[in-house]
């Protein structure tokens, strides 16, 4: 028996909207730790890791570890039927091949339930080692989204270079080149506009623009994004959800052949 109650359906809607275009089908794993997902995109270049901590839910009952295979597009369709301020309850009986999403309006005068078919997904689970990254950048999530979108219109790849002074995003395409430097800056009006650099040594890596753009669909989840890089490691683009957990995107770099 599984029963998870979350007061803000809007959060779950944003989570689904941010990954449904990158990953088609995925297993949601439910354990005492929380409601989590790990999945690769179809070309095995990017990986999504989501954790919604059990203590972030209003009610969390998970009698034993359970893995539920879902089509994320279909799940997103069902969640779109909820209002952002609805309470959502995710329910599944042991051995059932369906999951139920129940939405309750804040005044309790409208209650809907949507039953969705589960699917068997043969997915590979990867071990992600705890790593010390050579460079970590925290910056405005919406600024990062803007940069990825802008550079994506010029070139297919983005070089991200971190130095003590700041982070540089560069691209090159048929029509020309572009460079954006964001200097470290903590003297800002709003905390989320700060650019903070933690760096052991400078790092410069090349990534496919379209994946970075896809990750920025998670921008509504957080004011800041954390970008972690090391040589010969996938970049981590992380959106932390206050009190609930995180959405992490891993992307393998491109290398000179």
């Amino acid at each position: 028996m599984l029963e998870l109650r979350l007061t803000q359906a809007g959060l779950l809607k944003k989570v689904l909207e941010s990954i449904k275009d990158l990953v088609t089908d995925a297993n949601f794993d439910c354990s005492a730790t929380g409601f989590s997902l790990q999945a690769m995109d179809s070309s095995h270049v990017a990986l999504v890791a989501l954790l919604l901590r059990s203590d972030g839910f209003e009610h969390y009952r998970c009698d034993h570890n359970i893995s539920m295979g879902m089509n994320l597009g279909n799940m997103a369709k069902m969640l779109r039927c909820a209002s952002d301020d609805d309470t959502v309850t995710i329910k599944a009986d042991d051995g059932s091949d369906t999951v139920t999403f129940m939405f309750e309006s804040p005044s309790q005068d409208k209650i809907s339930d949507y039953e969705m078919k589960l699917m068997d997904i043969d997915s590979e689970h990867l071990g992600i080692p705890e790593a010390e990254y050579q460079a970590i950048v925290r910056m405005s999530a919406s600024e990062f989204a803007r940069i990825c979108k802008d550079l994506g219109t010029i070139g297919d790849t983005v070089i991200i270079s971190v130095t003590k002074e700041g982070v540089q995003f560069s691209t090159k395409g048929d029509i020309g080149t572009a460079n954006i430097i964001c200097r470290k800056n903590t003297a800002v009006d709003k905390k989320e506009e700060a650019t903070v650099i933690e760096m052991a040594e400078p790092v410069s890596l090349t990534f496919a623009s379209r994946y970075l753009i896809a990750f920025t669909k998670a921008t509504p989840l957080a004011g800041q994004v954390t970008i972690s890089m090391s040589y010969d490691m996938p970049i981590v683009v992380e959106y932390k959800m206050e009190t609930m957990g995180y959405m992490r995107f891993y992307l393998a770099p491109k290398i000179e052949e």
Binding site: V45, E124, L126, L251, I255, E257
Partner: peptide
Amino acid sequence: VNQQRHITSFFSKT
């Protein structure tokens, strides 16, 4: 030419 690497070449299956 930049060659795209795969996630599976960094993280191993569990």
